[in-house]
Structure formats: structure tokens, C-alpha cells
């Protein structure tokens, strides 16, 4: 029953990882940018929610209404002002720029907020759970996280497949120069895609903060690695694959946690490396290119 419980918790944890991975996947799929600062963007989202709560007393759910679009706008401008220029300079430059951002954010956060955890209380949501069977309870928050993750992936999939903007994004991923010949400024399309990635990252960051009861400046580094691992385990280019990858990672971590509380991160990393060696294309074959 302990194992079953860990399995279920792991699957639900996978929802969080999938949410973290989704933004990374969008940025890579459409812009070919690997955003090394992705985890930091998530952290910033969580910090904004925490600050809104501590200074204005705004409820977490309410703060999402501001935080998510706000980081979307930030993503739009980061793309337009920094990354677009970097993209024109070659393959290394976008990486180096995002790495620079990944260094700036946590250190600035430590200086501004110290290394203490900034609380994101959720009332009794964090402790509420549903009993499925004897000894098997699932938390309401993890369940909600998984639900949101699934909805986000489905929504993103639909958005890319069905809307005009989604079509432009896929076309820009294929051939941005030709898209320009069709009267569409690919730089705007890229910027919207990055805005979307940032907004989803912020949402994921807030959910992470709720789960952990708060956020620290060091979380971004963990999150970017989790997100990346979920993307690779799931298989590049598949949005549903990120969910599968997230679940594999989540299960690996929670099962390892049953053995020893020190093991989850190490085992998660080792599972990732094993997948990389044994099945480098990921566990889900990609059909849709994104």
C-alpha cells in the first residue's frame, strides 16, 4: 500500500512537472530557444504571488489573474528586446542570454527577499485530501494541479491547431522567413509564443509554491532541471509527451522517497540519464511538431 500510495502521489506530482515542462517545450518547439531561465521565471511567478499576498493580502487565486498575464507581457518583451537580437547572432547567443537571466534572477531574489522561504499559504487546501481506499489518500491540491496541467496541455494543443495565431506559431517554427513573405511579422509571433511560455511558467511556479507552502530563490534551478527532464523523457516535440515524462519523473522521485528522504532528486536525475542513454527519442513518439 505504501508503494501504491507513492505511485499515485508520483503520478500527481508529474502534473506539476508537466506544467513546468510545457513552457519550455513551447519555447523550444516554436523558437528553438532553450530557455535556461525557465525555472527562474517560474520562481518569479511564485514570488509575485507571495508578495501580492504578504503586502496586499491578495488571495493566491486572485493574484494569478495578475501574475500570469504580467509575466506573459514580460516574456513578450524579453523576446522582442533581448532574444530576438540573440537569435540573429547564432546558436550560442540565445543560450547565453537565458543563462545570464538565470544567474541574475536568483541572486537578485536573495538580495531582495533573503534566502528565507516566502510563504504562499492556501488555507486548508494544502492539507485537504480525498480517501480512495484504506491508506490511500490523494491531496486535493495535487489533484487540482494535475487537472490544470491536463487542461493546459489540451488547451495549448487546441490553440496551436485551431487558431490563427497557433497556425502562425507553427508556421514560424517551420520557416519564419517565408512567414514574413505572407505578411506576418515572425518577430511578433515569436514574442507571443514566448509570452505564452512565460505565462504558463508563472502559473506552474505558483502551483509549485502552493505545493511547497512557499518559494525560495533556489527553487528555479531545481525547476528548470525538472522541466527539462520531463521534456526529454517524454520525447522532444510532443506536448502530451511532457505529461508522460513528468509522470515518469514524479513516480521515480516519490518511489525513491519511500526508500530514503535523501534520494528523490538523485534517483530522478539517474532515471533521466538512463532514459537518455537507452531511449534518447523519449518514451512518446511525437506526431505533432511543437
Amino acid at each position: 500500500m505504501v508503494i501504491l500510495n507513492a505511485l499515485v502521489q508520483g503520478v500527481l506530482l508529474g502534473g506539476l512537472f508537466a506544467m513546468a515542462a510545457l513552457g519550455l517545450s513551447i519555447a523550444f518547439g516554436i523558437l528553438r530557444v532553450v530557455n535556461l531561465a525557465h525555472g527562474e521565471i517560474m520562481t518569479v511567478g511564485a514570488y509575485l504571488a507571495a508578495v501580492a499576498l504578504s503586502t496586499l493580502g491578495v488571495n493566491v487565486w486572485l493574484s494569478l489573474i495578475v501574475v500570469v498575464p504580467l509575466l506573459g507581457v514580460v516574456g513578450y518583451w524579453v523576446q522582442r528586446l533581448l532574444l530576438q537580437r540573440a537569435l540573429s547572432l547564432g546558436e550560442l547567443a540565445p543560450l547565453l542570454v537565458t543563462f545570464g537571466i538565470a544567474i541574475i534572477i536568483p541572486n537578485a531574489l536573495i538580495e531582495l527577499f533573503t534566502t528565507n522561504k516566502q510563504a504562499i499559504p492556501t488555507g486548508d487546501l494544502a492539507v485537504r485530501s480525498v480517501q480512495l481506499a484504506e491508506g490511500l489518500r490523494i491531496g486535493v491540491l495535487p489533484l487540482l494541479t494535475m487537472l490544470v496541467a491536463v487542461l493546459l496541455i489540451a488547451g495549448t494543443q487546441l490553440f496551436l491547431a485551431r487558431t490563427r495565431s497557433g497556425r502562425y506559431m507553427r508556421a514560424a517554427a517551420d520557416d519564419s522567413e517565408t512567414l514574413r513573405l505572407m505578411g506576418v511579422d515572425h518577430r511578433r509571433v515569436y514574442a507571443y509564443a514566448m509570452g505564452l511560455a512565460f505565462a504558463i511558467a508563472a502559473l506552474g511556479g505558483v502551483f509549485f509554491g502552493m505545493r511547497q507552502g512557499g518559494v525560495t530563490p533556489f527553487d528555479g534551478q531545481l525547476l528548470v532541471l525538472f522541466a527539462f527532464e520531463a521534456v526529454i523523457i517524454g520525447g522532444l516535440g510532443s506536448l502530451w509527451g511532457t505529461l508522460a515524462g513528468g509522470i515518469v519523473l514524479g513516480v521515480a522521485q516519490t518511489l525513491a522517497g519511500v526508500v530514503s528522504p535523501e534520494l528523490p532528486l538523485l534517483v530522478g536525475n539517474l532515471v533521466f540519464l538512463a532514459v537518455l542513454v537507452l531511449r534518447p527519442t523519449g518514451i512518446v513518439r511525437s506526431k505533432v511538431v511543437v
Binding site: 508556421a171 506576418v184 511538431v289
Partner: peptide, 17 residues
């Protein structure tokens, strides 16, 4: 646009509206 359908390719062509 290789990953788009023919219809989608045509629709993207109307980008200038």
C-alpha cells in the same frame, strides 16, 4: 510550411488579411 496541412498553408497565406 511542412508541418501544416494544405488548407492551413493557404490560410497562413492570407496573413496580410
Amino acid at each position: 510550411f511542412a508541418s501544416l496541412t494544405v488548407r492551413e498553408n493557404l490560410e497562413v497565406g492570407a496573413g496580410s488579411r
